[in-house]
Design a binder for these strands. Structure first.
Length: 491
RNA sequence: CGGGGUGUAGCGCAGCCCGGUUAGCGCACCUGGUUUGGGACCAGGGGGUCGCAGGUUCGAAUCCUGCCACCCCGACCA
């Protein structure tokens, strides 16, 4: 965008909004708290969906679809769950409109009040477990390994494109198992799938960990998560995987006969990632010139921009460009030849940089003469002039390099923003200064966590899996602690 | 729901304090021409219920009252 990434928090927000709009990803809708995902933005989401969906299927899951509406009574069956979501539910109370008697347009027909209100799903555990009750009788019916791609509604007070909108798109997996071990293994497996996707496709490094009781999903026994660090120093929860224990089985009476012929409650998991990942992608890799997309998720891998004066030149360039496009497409790459004569080359360069296209190939009269092209990579902005026939090997190699470089760059940034602190003073100083993840000892109590949150706005993002054990004292209470946990201010 | 801010052409804004021709600028758009290796230039042109409603006034984008919408910061959350 030609505008430096701001360091002040408010400015970063505005910069982010502008980028989302200018890169043609999404825009605010006139509908309260909602967002319109534009075709270019959606095509990135589709790439994410495709990759994730394949990973789910490779781990034995299948897709299904459950209702958008949840009868109010379902939601209240699991006590913690309803408490966690009650404050942000959209509720359907009527099913009909009518013309106003005073001619003031259309009004809700009071006659058409629903017997039982319907909740627009904020998540689907309740509808799904009420369905699973009918699906499970015997251990032979287990496990159920189902995923659904859906939209959900959470009536958040304050919204932010991709990170928190009233309606958003996501994927939610809901599985049912005969044993605790199997369910825990599933929970951990899906966390690994998420980490794998986010790191290898999105090129965003994450910390895998488990949430504290305070931050746990409403109704879960354990919530595992992946936490990423954004370039403004704030943390973003990129995905969660919950071990539900037998909580939902109990609430919805989902029992099965085990091999010994005894009735037992089913063990459950649920896991999800959302269009929030788009926000993570944007806030991890973007630079002063706009979006930077990792090749594995870029809707367009290579854009070819012709530079010409005369029609004959355009003809000759077109031939070359089409040949390149054909050859690279055959390798499975998505190539766009922007042959519009309504925009000048410089304009196109800026445009595709803004949209994050990983590789740009420019062909002009000079190249026609020399049999060369100019290849520019988006991540480093480096340009090189190469022979035409080198492209078939150079492009795949470059795309791989960009993918790796983006990950390494983000990881280096994150490492620099991980700080071990041993006093509360230092803790606050780091939060207000360089930001990022702060590793500190914590006494393990909710009270301490709450107080720290209240005083500093920092929360415990997670307790990392395979965390190093280390004797120490809580930075807040001074009580003994056996390990450091990850604190940060978060989105 | 609290605090701050903004609503004027598709986008970004000036004008408002101190009321007064026909409401202006940049980008974008249309026409013609010259251009094309990093967001071209010249000339001409089109596009406005000044967020909405009411009030004050001979006269309101400008002053007053009420309402609405959006943005940013908090509380809530993925």
């Amino acid at each position: 965008m030609g505008k430096a990434i701001p360091t002040r928090e408010e400015d970063y927000s505005e910069w982010y909004n502008e980028l989302v709009r200018k890169a043609d990803l999404a825009e605010h809708s006139a509908v309260r708290g909602c967002m319109v995902i534009k075709p270019y933005g959606f095509s990135i989401w589709e790439k994410m969906q495709a990759a994730l969906d394949k990973m789910f299927k490779d781990t034995g899951h299948t897709n299904a679809y459950f209702p958008l509406f949840i009868p109010k009574s379902y939601l209240s069956k699991e006590a913690d769950h309803v408490e966690g979501f009650a404050k942000e539910c959209a509720v359907v109370t009527h099913y009909r409109l009518k013309n106003d008697a005073d001619g003031k347009g259309v009004v809700v027909d009071p006659e058409a009040k629903l017997e039982e209100e319907l909740i627009v799903r904020p998540t689907s555990e309740t509808v799904i477990w009420s369905t699973y009750r009918n699906w499970v009788q015997s251990y032979r019916d287990l496990p159920i390994l189902v995923n659904q791609w859906a939209n959900i509604v959470r009536w958040e007070m304050r919204t932010r494109m991709f990170l928190r909108t009233a309606e958003f798109l996501w994927q939610e997996g809901h599985t049912a198992h005969a044993t605790k071990n199997e369910a825990v293994a599933e929970t951990r497996q899906m966390l690994d799938v998420y980490a794998d996707f986010v790191e290898n496709f999105m090129a965003v490094p994450v910390i895998k960990g488990v949430k504290t009781e305070n931050e746990r999903f409403a109704g879960a026994v354990d919530t595992y998560c992946i936490e990423a660090l954004m370039q403004d120093g704030k943390a973003l929860q990129a995905g969660t995987s919950h071990f539900l224990g037998q909580n939902f089985a109990k609430a919805f009476d989902v029992k099965f006969s085990n091999k010994e012929g005894k009735l037992d409650l089913v063990w459950g998991t649920s896991w999800g990632v959302s269009t929030r990942l788009m926000g993570a992608l944007i806030m991890t890799h973007s630079d002063d010139d706009g979006l930077v997309l990792p090749p594995k998720l870029a809707p367009i891998h290579v854009v070819i921009v012709p530079i010409f004066k005369k029609p004959e030149e355009f003809e000759a360039i077109s031939d070359k460009a089409e040949a390149i496009k054909k050859s690279l497409s055959a390798q499975g790459f998505s190539v766009k030849f922007d042959n519009r004569d309504t925009h000048k080359p410089g304009w196109k360069f800026a445009e595709y940089e803004l949209k994050g296209v990983p590789i740009r190939i420019a062909i002009g009269p000079r190249d026609l003469e020399n049999g060369t092209v100019e290849v520019a990579r988006r991540d480093t902005k480096e340009k090189q002039t190469v022979n035409l026939d080198a492209l078939d090997t150079l492009v795949p190699q470059l795309l791989e390099e960009i993918q790796t470089n983006l990950y390494e760059r983000a990881k280096k940034f994150r490492e620099e923003k991980m700080t071990k602190v041993d006093s509360y003073e230092q803790f606050k100083e780091v939060l207000d200064g360089k930001g990022g993840f702060v590793l500190a000892h914590w006494d393990g109590t909710n009270e301490t966590e709450d107080r720290i949150k209240e005083e500093t706005k920092a929360t415990i993002r997670c307790i990392p899996l395979d965390n190093e054990q280390e004797e120490g004292v809580c930075i807040y209470s001074g009580k003994p602690s056996k390990q450091r946990v990850v604190f940060a201010r978060a989105y």
